[in-house]
Simulated scan of single mutants.
Amino acid sequence: MKDQATHRINQELRDRHPGPFGPQYWLLNVSGDIVVRGWEIVYRGDPEPIGKNLKICRTIREALDWIESHAKR
Rank of each mutant, 00 (worst) to 15 (best):
M1L: 10
M1G: 15
M1S: 12
K2L: 00
K2C: 05
K2N: 06
A5E: 15
T6R: 03
T6S: 06
H7T: 08
R8W: 07
R8I: 12
I9Y: 00
I9A: 02
I9L: 05
N10T: 03
R14A: 08
R14Q: 14
P20I: 15
G22R: 09
G22C: 03
Q24N: 15
Y25S: 10
L27K: 02
L28P: 02
N29S: 15
V30F: 11
V30W: 00
S31R: 02
G32D: 12
I34R: 07
V35C: 05
V36A: 08
V36K: 03
R37T: 06
R37M: 13
G38H: 08
G38D: 11
W39E: 15
E40N: 12
E40Q: 13
I41F: 05
I41L: 15
V42E: 12
G45P: 01
G45N: 10
D46V: 01
D46M: 07
D46E: 01
P47T: 05
P47V: 05
P49M: 06
P49E: 05
I50F: 05
K52Q: 03
N53V: 11
L54H: 03
L54F: 11
K55N: 02
K55R: 08
K55S: 12
K55L: 11
I56Q: 07
I56C: 02
I56G: 01
C57W: 11
C57E: 04
T59L: 14
T59C: 13
R61P: 01
E62W: 09
E62H: 06
L64A: 05
W66H: 09
I67H: 02
E68W: 09
E68Q: 09
S69L: 04
H70Q: 11
A71P: 06
K72S: 12
R73N: 12
